[in-house]
Amino acid sequence: MRSQAHHSRVVRSAVTLVAFFTFWQVADAQQSSTGPARVVGTIQVISGKSLTVISDTGVSSDVRIEDATKFLQIEPGRTDLKEATPLSFSELQSGDRVLVRGILAEDGKTIRAASVIAVKKVAIAEKQAKERAEWQRGIGGLVKSVDPSASTILLTTNSLNANKEVLVHFTKDTILRRYAADSTRFDSARLAPLSELQPGDQLRARGGRSESGSEFNAVEIISGTFRSIAGTILSVDAATNAFVVQDLASKTAVTLRISSESQMRKLPAQFAEGLAARLHGQASGTGQSQNPAAQDVAPQAASNAQRGSTPGASQGGRGAGGDFQQMIARMPAATIADLQKGDAVMVVTTQGNGKDPLTVVTLLGGVEPILRASPKGSQDMILAPWSLGGGEPSGN
């Protein structure tokens, strides 16, 4: 998975559905074989005066346009039809989201449309692009504490120089989402109450930073409980996209599965050595490496790695300034073919369901120097923000 796409996938088409449409989805399942009918979905085909609309559950509906059919356009996220604007049939396109209301024709299948309310696919794409940018400018880290009375979350983040704390503010309008136990897909996340957010959870938010960077006003928050594993690879089965790791903490063998959503990177040796030197300096209480020459190794190695990374990725700004989750996210992706028996890896996985292998959320290879420098599990802070995208959630 690449964060450029929170976070490629996006990627997140279900997230852009208009709330107005969602309101009617229950009614869709209850409509009878005659009388009033409604369908919510995406236009697949436009032929003459007919539409083929595919619902979110994959059901196809034929819609017949009448001379009296009314057309309206509404922007993504809007729910009040007073904000809708007139639209003509000729402006509809395949890929547009629509709510069709009308009556069933004599065949009991075709809907004779009385009204069509559309969200243009271009508007959806623009909204997705805007949200991707907001996630990439967002913040990620480990939850240190939650204060419901003050509507704040204390988040521990880190940079190349030192860990730092950021106070995240939320309001009654802030969207709170929770990842599923066995997935990091954004569109599989559910709305969740604040009470489910616990210290130690990984969190990512989009919104706005204060000038000092010590506070963040969240518009949307997504969080989850994940497991961190550091160890050496015992075996690799490329045919099943699985491998076994000897967990250094529990001293047990753990089977892990790589999915299409897994983010995998292999650190350049120079980058890993420089990062290890910094972590060693933090562990000794200096906040810096004991070797001044090592201070610029990680940024320089990351810059070198970025030159071969995804076109369009930022080559400066935050990357050079010390957000190494962004650096990691911009490095070329690794595959299971890059994993070898005896390699040291740091992995964030799903909590799992207790039966199947844990699914890899993020994996870093080439981390032998880091584990030597901080064997107690610095992977929590190295991987935490990146594992929720280093940008948008569930990006590839």
Rank of each mutant, 00 (worst) to 15 (best):
A276V: 02
T57Y: 12
N291M: 12
L167G: 01
L17E: 07
A302R: 00
A239F: 00
M346K: 03
T85W: 14
F216D: 13
L197G: 06
I153H: 05
P357V: 12
T255A: 11
E91F: 04
A294G: 03
I258Q: 14
T157M: 10
L267Q: 06
P148F: 09
A320F: 09
V143T: 12
N241E: 10
A344D: 09
R330W: 08
D182Y: 05
V10P: 05
L363F: 12
G321E: 15
G391P: 08
G141K: 10
A218H: 08
Q295T: 09
S13V: 10
G95Q: 01
I221G: 12
S188Q: 13
L191T: 11
A333F: 11
L81Q: 08
D173S: 13
F23G: 03
V360F: 07
L275I: 00
A333D: 15
T310R: 15
V122S: 01
A249N: 05
R38G: 06
L191H: 15
L99C: 04
G35C: 08
S250Q: 10
V39K: 11
S394E: 11
Q73P: 01
A293P: 00
A218V: 11
K121F: 09
S289V: 03
L104R: 15
P292C: 01
F186N: 03
G41T: 09
